[in-house]
């Protein structure tokens, strides 16, 4: 990402002497109000929980112990691996993963379709895809909940058409949460894939077709490897926010299906009031996400390397 810089010593406008004053606001704002808070959160995750909310300044591993070690209901049994929170994380990863997969299955054809329209039409198509993204996520989630409720328009409509005999319960199920995540982040999948497909050299497909490769073989063997960076970027953009999502599990999952986001929220806003544990869960989530991003950065730089080799 670093880039070699435009030219040695100062650019055309002579901005070099102002480098520090120009960057200082950014460094200060993000440094004080994001980096420092995250560091404090790391410290908090090692503090002792006060009875019903708040912390005591005694350093302990209790929060991580609670996360990973099961000592029985009352904490007096021999330690074993605590599966509860790992299961919540796993369920969140699984839900986010499925949502990403659905987004890819719908998003890839959509991105391809848009990128193969005449140039004058593409802007309008993209515009149509992006509008819903700009609508408040909360409102979109509420709308979806309204649409799929037991006696909502979807069920009523399908019953009126005779497709269904009885309403299908979607609200408060895992499926509803997946649907919510899928719906929330679908545009994030379409846009990077579109950008990659737009740059794709269709002569490659034509060459494959000349060699009697079928459309689908061409797609699998030629197109997907070439546009892979776009696909990976789309998957990351859907997967990361899905992992920490709070609105979809809370509103569509009935607050019963804990996901990482709602688990953390509950520690601060809900009745449990366990700040160190919430901080520890946040740390673990952040670590997971940064790992995912590193995998992405590595595959992106590999792809760049391959591109250069060609």
């Amino acid at each position: 990402m670093a880039g070699p810089g435009t030219s040695g010593g100062g650019g055309g406008g002579g901005w070099r002497p102002l480098l520090v004053p120009l960057l200082m606001p950014t460094w200060l704002t993000i440094g004080i109000f994001l980096v420092l808070p995250v560091a404090l959160m790391a410290v908090y995750s090692f503090l002792t929980k006060e009875f019903r909310g708040g912390v005591i300044w005694d350093f302990t591993l209790a929060a991580y112990d609670q996360f990973f070690v099961d000592r029985g209901l009352f904490g007096d049994e021999p330690p074993a691996i605590e599966w509860t929170y790992i299961a919540i994380f796993w369920r969140s990863i699984w839900q986010a993963g499925l949502a990403t997969l659905f987004c890819l299955l719908v998003g890839f054809p959509t991105a391809w379709f848009i990128a193969t329209r005449p140039a004058s039409q593409r802007g309008v198509w993209l515009f149509l895809i992006t509008i819903p993204y700009w609508v408040n996520l909360l409102i979109r989630t509420v709308s979806l909940k309204f649409l799929i409720r037991d006696n909502g328009p979807l069920n009523e409509g399908l019953m009126a058409l005779g497709v269904l005999d009885a309403p299908v319960t979607l609200v408060n199920t895992n499926l509803a949460v997946q649907l919510g995540l899928f719906y929330s982040y679908l545009p994030f999948m379409v846009l990077p894939i579109y950008a990659a497909v737009e740059r794709y050299n269709f002569a490659l497909s034509e060459a494959a077709a000349d060699l009697y490769a079928s459309r689908w073989v061409t797609l699998r063997e030629i197109v997907i490897p070439v546009v892979k960076p776009g696909i990976v970027a789309g998957c990351i953009l859907v997967f990361v926010p899905s992992l920490g999502a709070f609105l979809a599990p809370d509103l569509l999952g009935g607050a019963k299906t804990f996901m990482i986001g709602s688990l953390i929220e509950e520690q601060f806003k809900g009745s449990l009031g366990n700040w160190p544990f919430g901080a520890a869960a946040s740390m673990i989530l952040m670590t997971l996400v940064l790992c995912a991003l590193m995998v992405y950065a590595r595959s992106a730089s590999q792809a760049a390397g391959q591109g250069a080799a060609r």
Binding site: M41, Y44, G244, I264, F268, A279, V289
Partner: peptide, 15 residues
């Protein structure tokens, strides 16, 4: 953009 929103929220509140 890289840190999940809920983590930013928690960290900011603690700060």
């Amino acid at each position: 953009l890289m840190v999940p929103e809920i983590v930013v929220a928690v960290a900011t509140l603690i700060f």
